[in-house]
């Protein structure tokens, strides 16, 4: 479903933490996820939630998703319409959360440094590539584990379970490649 994404780049730097994505303070003030949307990337890009278009790609530097385990970060990005995240390195809890909500996150060293705001970015998990079409530069990405591909393809782990009747580990005894 979301294995191939094309959209405009929003360029962010190094160390974008889950606090930058959605500050923890709002979690204790707003009970509903939708009510937090206006605070998405609040201190980083003003009115991001209004300006982002479906399929847009966040292109970031090192250490994306650092910090709190708050899943709200990945969920809100997805809810706002972000199609994928491309970053030089990604923190693991954010990565798992993104997989679970069906938001593709890929690690790329070549694309982020050359990408400018608004460039057209293609993320293709089937081909295993990320391409900056505006600059005509492509990079092969590490192929994702089939388990992760399955979850993203379903649109997230909840959708996977609704479709198959249980989490993937119920159906596969081993995940070694």
């Amino acid at each position: 479903m979301t294995l191939r994404v094309k959209g405009r780049a929003w360029v962010l730097g190094d160390g974008v933490s889950t606090d930058h994505i959605i500050s923890g303070k709002f979690k204790y003030q707003k009970a509903r996820l939708e009510d937090m949307l206006p605070y998405l990337l609040y201190d980083v890009i003003s009115d991001f939630y209004k300006r982002v278009r479906p399929g847009d790609v966040i292109v970031a530097g090192k250490g994306f998703g650092y910090g709190s385990s708050r899943e709200h970060a990945a969920r809100l990005l997805k809810m706002a319409g972000v199609g994928a995240v491309v970053a030089v390195s990604v923190h693991r809890i954010f990565y798992r959360n993104a997989v679970n909500v069906g938001l593709p996150v890929v690690v790329s060293t070549k694309i982020p440094p050359i990408t400018r705001e608004g460039d057209t970015i293609l993320v293709d998990l089937v081909e295993g590539i990320v391409v900056n079409e505006s600059k005509n530069i492509r990079e092969e990405i590490q192929s994702l584990h089939p388990l992760i591909v399955d979850i993203i393809k379903a649109g997230g782990i909840e959708e996977y379970i609704l479709k198959h009747g249980g989490p993937p580990w119920q159906f596969r005894s081993s995940f070694s490649k």
Binding site: S69, E71, R92, N97, N100, V101, I157, E158, P167
Partner: peptide, 14 residues
Amino acid sequence: TGFGSTDAALAMAT
């Protein structure tokens, strides 16, 4: 190690 809510929820259930 730390997990998000969904991962923890599924670990709790399964």
